[in-house]
Design a protein around this nucleic acid. Structure first.
Lengths: 228, 228
DNA sequence: TTTTATTAACTAACTGGTCAGATACTTGGA
DNA sequence: TCCAAGTATCTGACCAGTTAGTTAATAAAA
């Protein structure tokens, strides 16, 4: 059931050799992400792409190859862009920037697209070690580098104490991710009776207090009673 | 290929109705954990249990039921025991206890058994929502409660500032988990060129500095140069 | 001898991958 | 501008391999 032809006299299908690969990769992402690689059939993917299974094999030699190609195509969407103004940080402190970043990270990690990608990656990693390693190197570690750069700036500016920024950045991500994954994949229907804003605020507080130089003050945004 | 019978005159197999279920669950955990639920066949499980597939169906009505039963049987092994001496904390500070705990947590998260369980849970969660929710409630949240209790003691003792202990505990876990999962599932062969001890030390430092009341000092165990 | 746990061979359904043929588009001649 | 021959793209039926689940036969125990 390709291109709908209910209306008058459309062709049963169209030749679209330029867009097919992208179309298929997009469908593969959606279908693999929701059903899982082994539960999803190529007929599912084809249907989602509006074509039939045979067409997939014109562009990808096997299901496994389609999967790894999909991973490659997604490699730079694993984290939202971390805008790092390399020049003067201007009037805004690194502390403030991390607050904003935390909120954005958490939102992103909660998105179905991220959760699907995370699930897919975790699930299939052992069976696709090279593809996974590539994704890890080019996607995850790159993103972490950009995040670490922010922390590094905070250290240079004298705001933060000296910690390994790579480790700190990854830990920052880990804190948000565990909540997002718990909620999105495991908890489902609000098993955690904690509102998002409180999670983001508390986590950011802990992390910032852990990095800020003592006496630079302002580890809490509002009186401590709020975080209880 | 059930019970080995190479030595003289053993019976070809034994009737073991009492131990079979446990045996099967144990094998299911190993096989599902390594191959993944859909890649692992029931013949694989049977072979691992030293029986044949038919026997599995004497004790479990279907593959899905075997899987959920396996989850239930594993529910209280999701985290290492957190010994919380409810009585007087004695001479040891909560700070010290968290240091030890961090190391133990990280080691545990790096273990193949934990990683297999994590992978399994993440992979199959959408297809077994009730079983997952049960595991989450009875296993993960319980363990987090025990961990939160430690933090709560630190707050009562005046060591830590007031934060939501549930959130803090989960964040603590999240920091270690992301490193363990990256290393164990994604990175594989040491893509992270950071030694374990440094990860554990830095993460614990950040977390403790984030909780300790300023001026209670000792946010770093050794001069800051070590963490660069 | 009877009971019951276990096996091993079986079936039915599913799915990755193939390919012959059908169909949309292109080109060039009139 | 129209049309026919040619080609690239796509389909759908098919095959071969795999596996969850069944069951008749068998062997251990009672």
């Amino acid at each position: 059931m390709p291109i709908a032809q209910s209306h008058a006299r459309g062709p049963r299908w169209r030749r679209r050799p330029e867009v097919r690969p992208q179309q298929i990769l997009e469908a593969a992402f959606r279908v693999f992400g929701t059903r899982g690689l082994h539960q999803a059939t190529l007929d599912d993917v084809a249907r989602a792409a509006g074509i039939t299974k045979g067409t997939i094999y014109l562009y990808f030699p096997s299901k496994a190859d389609l999967f790894t190609a999909m991973l490659k195509a997604r490699v730079n969407r694993i984290m939202p862009p971390v805008d790092v103004p390399k020049g003067g940080p201007g009037p805004v402190t690194t502390r403030d920037r991390l607050c904003t970043l935390g909120r954005r990270l958490y939102r992103f990690f909660c998105s179905p697209a991220y959760l699907a990608m995370y699930r897919t990656l975790i699930s299939e990693a052992p069976q696709f070690p090279e593809a996974t390693a590539h994704f890890y190197r080019e996607g995850i570690l790159q993103a972490n580098q950009r995040l670490a750069e922010v922390i590094r700036q905070g250290i240079s500016a004298g705001e933060f104490r000296e910690v390994n920024p790579i480790i700190a950045a990854r830990a920052f991500v880990g804190m948000f991710q565990i909540f997002a994954v718990s909620q999105g994949l495991l908890g489902g229907q609000r098993l955690y009776p904690i509102p998002e804003t409180r999670i983001v605020r508390t986590v950011t507080e802990i992390f910032l207090s852990g990095l800020l130089i003592s006496g630079a003050g302002a580890s809490r945004r509002r009186p401590a009673r709020g975080s209880r």
